[in-house]
Simulated assay, not measured.
Amino acid sequence: MESFNWNPGSLLEMSGYYWKTCTLHTGVKLDIFTAIGSEALSCNEINKKLKVDKRGLTMLLNSLSALELLVKDGKKYSNSLPALTFLSKESPQYLGFMIMHHHHLMESWHKMDKAIIEGKQTRRRSSFSDEERRESFLMGMFNIGMAAAPGLSKELDLSGCKRLLDFGGGPGTFAIHFCL
């Protein structure tokens, strides 16, 4: 196996990667991509739907454009094809729930040093501590399952099976497709 060539540039890139992650998480959490949909909208038009601070929204829209998740043309913003496909709730391929699950997990990762120093956990169990976290986890598992379950269920011959056990499959996505 070839080892990675760590250097100052790659180390600093990794160290600062959080800004991309946090920008993506914020865009999904605020539902920017669904608000824009297949339209090209100005910041004011987007803000009529979101009702947030305009200065902050402008910075977020420009950051999402820098990441090429949004396309900025003059004063209008539109979704890139990947954003429209994976980050808009209108899409059957929406991945936002899993992205929000990752967002909820960040609390424990940014406190990793404290957990190691003190030898104990730094947060409650993320998946079930409140309704938003539970929905993000379960629907995130659904997002992952829907990417594989329909095709896998057609490939497997389950004709001789009388019982199936769905163990750790999130909301039962695989079990539903296998039964179908």
Results as ranks from 00 to 15, higher is better:
24 L>M: 01
17 Y>E: 04
18 Y>C: 08
27 G>F: 01
54 K>A: 15
26 T>G: 02
51 K>V: 12
25 H>E: 13
22 C>H: 12
24 L>R: 00
34 T>V: 05
26 T>P: 01
32 I>L: 05
28 V>K: 00
27 G>E: 01
23 T>F: 02
45 E>L: 11
34 T>C: 05
23 T>S: 10
31 D>R: 09
17 Y>K: 04
17 Y>H: 07
19 W>V: 11
15 S>H: 12
45 E>Y: 08
19 W>E: 12
36 I>Q: 00
16 G>P: 03
52 V>F: 09
48 K>C: 14
36 I>L: 04
30 L>R: 01
45 E>D: 13
30 L>W: 03
38 S>N: 12
41 L>C: 08
56 G>M: 11
56 G>Q: 14
47 N>W: 09
52 V>P: 05
50 L>V: 09
19 W>T: 11
17 Y>R: 04
56 G>C: 13
17 Y>Q: 04
35 A>P: 00
36 I>R: 04
42 S>M: 11
39 E>S: 14
37 G>L: 03
40 A>V: 06
34 T>E: 11
54 K>R: 15
40 A>I: 06
16 G>A: 07
48 K>Y: 14
31 D>G: 07
36 I>E: 02
32 I>P: 00
22 C>N: 14
34 T>H: 09
46 I>S: 03
17 Y>S: 05
44 N>C: 06
28 V>L: 05
45 E>A: 14
26 T>M: 07
17 Y>F: 07
24 L>W: 00
34 T>A: 08
42 S>Y: 10
26 T>V: 05
